[in-house]
Nucleic acid binder design. Structure first.
Lengths: 206, 206, 206, 206
DNA sequence: CATGAATGAGGTTTCATTCAT
DNA sequence: TATGAATGAAACCTCATTCAT
């Protein structure tokens, strides 16, 4: 609807911008920010270097945009089950599933994402920290709220809801990392239910 | 004792080398490998650039050495409680405590360590991967073995020991990261016992 | 004609490349490869350093290209009279003349050329040796063949044709070097005929 | 006799100096001035770097000393037959023989020598030129004088004696270079007599 | 006196960014 | 508007030379 307002030219520009972002993401996530040059991005995106600078003020901006978009997509996909499901257990299972899907879809770009969300200290995105933190906090708050209500309804044992949220994050991350790094090993079922079971058994009332 | 064998000169050289490593660590962990120049390291270490190259073949070598030393210290400190304690529960509590101490002592350098152990794909330490993986696997194996025996002795519920090891890793990491990033917030007791309780309650019989 | 195919841009690029080569040649032949920096070449060619690297992968490549072009020109100019003239004597006289012209035109660059053809052991152009040797051998073979046929036709005394070729090389080089180093001295006529006479009287029948 | 005046210490110093020169010569003649570092020379000579600087003011000085000594030895050895022999023909044959011996003895270091004598323009030995030129001119003068007297005695045809000297230089150099670069090929007898015959037949009466 | 650790100027090379076309 | 050649700052690294021991 509202995008109708954009002229064809603006539409095209937007589309080209996306194209550049996607090319850059692929390269960055394979080799890292510092090992990819603007020339390489330009080549992959099939634009001239100068054109990239029409879309982004500089390399850092281009990078920030990638991280921002990634963060937003991830946030959207992880929030969705948490907001859709009424039942706490279902919400958590949905969340774990969404995270697993995310990891499967974006294996390599994930490292980029995590290096940004988990170690804001020495990354490129100065100034992005706050935005990212905001999204992350939203997610954690939402998780905490779900735990809080589940505790009230005696679905899970009484514990600090924030601590539970952190726990869930930790569990999912560690399993997903493990699977990411060792795609071949199968000591146990490699799907969301493994994590869900461990977490839920751990926190549930008998 | 055995270090008596080193001449004063050798001792001094070793000390100077350590001095450079420590200066570099501080810089790298604050800004990352690519954002720190040899000139900056030289300045911080109060040596001439050329001197750094007496100690390390090149920048990459210097970096690898840092990561290697860090990894070895961390491994040592985390393994220690696991090998000292006979009781599974005590071992795990000891492990969590050791990890907390580690995080407190080496806040910033830790990010360097984790960026190496957790995302070997686009880091600098080509060839260091295997060493690091070996240490990490040793740790995980040791944890798994402890869980295995605890399960046999019915101390904790039957689950895949490897999965338990991964879980513990995830839980500790997420809490410690959380505390690292938000040193001011105290939604719950910020010590090892919080994690230990969550983990152990989750996995224990009744 | 065929160069019409090159676009104006390509033409200009080629021209600029030549310009760099010529600036570098002048510097190298005055001070030698190791005593000339890329910065100096850039300055002389009135380009930024970075621009040099658009034309040549690195300093060595730039140097090799100079030597290669020089060798090819020299080869062309020296071969020409040998292939044009049917008469052995005329061919030799033509060759000596061509060499004299060459020396006059390219005084300084010649030392570069000779330091490459005559002492392939410790020069920069590893890998260029073979090419240069090939050209040089072609020339010597051609000279030898001319002598062979002249001997058959009893134009010159019977001797090993290869030895005669080497002799001619030696004579011409020594005179030309002599003239190059002492442009002012005139103990005898300073032109091709001096060498030709010495050589031909030496080898001819009566 | 006169060296008795030198104390043992001075003798030793002199001896050590020679040792350094010889080590450096070996290295320089294999790889060239710019590809050999003071460290390498120190190592080969089994001295500390600092010690080299007791003997020579700097790298260039060390190099000049090598070239100077080399030039003096060569000069001595080439002059000797020219001054010993009374007969022009014998003197020339002796000279060619001496040159051949020289080339055989000092194959590699010769390139160093020739790069200095033949292309004084871009070498390291700034200021050495004059000395070298003096020695070289002495040699050429002596050769010229011999030719002059031989012409007077009708041993060889009338020609400019200087030109004959240059010719002899050229012939010997070209053959010796040829043999140096292609030690395996034998198109003709590879000894002094080949050159002597060519030269003498070329210039002689009859 | 001999040593070699330390120095730092200066070399080569890369690459984000600009701007004339 | 899109281009990519040109730019030059700044990176890594070497090595002749010095000087405290």
């Amino acid at each position: 609807m509202e995008e109708q307002r954009l002229s064809r030219k603006e539409q095209e520009k937007l589309w080209r911008r996306k194209h550049v972002l996607s090319a850059a993401l692929e390269l960055f996530s394979k080799k890292g920010y510092h090992n990819i040059s603007m020339r390489q991005i330009a080549k992959k995106a099939e634009f001239a270097i100068g054109t990239l600078y029409k879309f982004f003020r500089n390399k850092e901006d281009l990078y920030k945009e990638i991280v921002r978009e990634m963060a937003e997509e991830y946030h959207r996909r992880l929030m969705e089950p948490l907001e859709r499901e009424n039942d706490a257990i279902a919400a958590i299972e949905g969340y774990i599933n969404a995270k697993l899907d995310l990891f499967s879809d974006h294996k390599s770009s994930l490292l980029l994402y995590l290096s940004e969300t988990q170690s804001p200290s020495f990354n490129i995105s100065a100034g992005l920290d706050k935005e990212m933190q905001k999204l992350y906090n939203e997610l954690m708050d939402r998780l905490a709220k779900i735990f809080e209500s589940a505790i009230k309804r005696k679905k899970i044992r009484k514990r600090d809801p924030r601590a539970l949220a952190i726990s869930l994050e930790g569990l999912t991350n560690s399993f997903l990392f493990y699977w990411l790094e060792k795609p071949e090993e199968h000591p146990f079922e490699k799907d969301a239910s493994t994590i869900a079971e461990i977490f839920l058994k751990g926190v549930s009332y008998e």
